[in-house]
Every structure is written in structure tokens, then in C-alpha cells.
């Protein structure tokens, strides 16, 4: 259990590590080129891993709805945005604002899709996140 918890924390560290390295590549090239290499090298790595472990086409992937295939192009913009932001506002600020956006849009998506959940907890969570964003809002005076 502790081992799996450590792996879950490591997964988060790898997200930050990936953004840091992609951000450095974007400093020498461009945010879009950094996003391209992120996807191509990731593709090669996953292909090799899938060949080693097998089961890439297991299940019924053809049966999934067409819109489920749109994650790639969305990810290109996401990685490019992260690479562009991290060199400008820092790793922590980038991570916190992306998490804030993910959580609040996730709540909105859950409500649209009718996912069950506590409205009170969602309300308190969103309020705390908005308060956190307010604290570092742009245009305030730094003292």
C-alpha cells in the first residue's frame, strides 16, 4: 500500500519533471516544437513498452465513440501552453493554476454529464480554489 502511494506521488513528480524539461526545450526552440517532441518521443516510448508487454489492441477500441479520439490534438495545445507558461510565471504558479482550471472545469463537466456528487462539497471546493486564485491575482501590488 505504501509502495503504491509512493508510485502515485512519483506520477505527480513526473508530471512536473516533464513540464520542466519541455519548458527548457521551448526556451531553445518554441512551445509548439517542444509539444511536438513531447508527443513523438512519448509515442516511441509507449510503442516500445506496448511491444514488450503486449495487449495494445486488446478490448474493443473500434467501438469507442469518435470524439474519444480527440484527446491528441487537445493535448498538443495543453503541452505547448505548459511549456510556454513555465518559463514565464514559474513551475509552482503554472501547476497551481492548471490544477485550479482542471478542478473547476471538472466540476462543471460532472454537473453537465450528471455525475453524482455532493453540491455542498463541490461548492466549498470551488470557493477555496477561487480564493486561492484571488490571492495571487494579476495586477495586485507586490509588497
Amino acid at each position: 500500500m505504501i509502495g503504491f502511494a509512493a508510485l502515485a506521488v512519483l506520477a505527480g513528480v513526473l508530471v512536473g519533471l516533464s513540464r520542466q524539461i519541455n519548458g527548457r526545450l521551448a526556451l531553445s526552440t518554441s512551445a509548439m516544437e517542444s509539444s511536438f517532441w513531447n508527443h513523438l518521443i512519448g509515442l516511441i516510448f509507449i510503442t516500445l513498452a506496448a511491444m514488450a508487454f503486449g495487449g495494445l489492441f486488446a478490448g474493443e477500441p473500434v467501438a469507442s465513440p469518435w470524439w474519444a479520439y480527440l484527446g491528441g490534438p487537445v493535448g498538443v495545445i495543453f503541452i505547448a501552453a505548459g511549456s510556454w507558461l513555465i518559463a514565464r510565471i514559474g513551475a509552482a504558479q503554472t501547476a497551481m493554476l492548471i490544477i485550479a482550471g482542471q478542478m473547476i472545469s471538472g466540476v462543471v463537466l460532472d454537473i453537465i454529464l450528471g455525475a453524482p456528487g455532493s453540491p455542498v462539497a463541490r461548492g466549498i471546493g470551488v470557493a477555496l480554489i477561487l480564493a486561492g486564485m484571488w490571492v495571487t491575482r494579476p495586477g495586485r501590488n507586490r509588497t
Binding site: 493535448g75 495545445i77 495543453f78 501552453a81 510565471i89 490544477i99 482542471q102 472545469s105 471538472g106
Partner: peptide, 13 residues
């Protein structure tokens, strides 16, 4: 941009 990128991440998930 960062907040919007978080929204894109929700769509990717």
C-alpha cells in the same frame, strides 16, 4: 492561459 489549459486537461481526461 493556465486556467484554460486546466480546462483542456479535463477534456483530455
Amino acid at each position: 492561459a493556465a486556467f484554460g489549459a486546466g480546462g483542456l486537461l479535463s477534456l483530455m481526461v
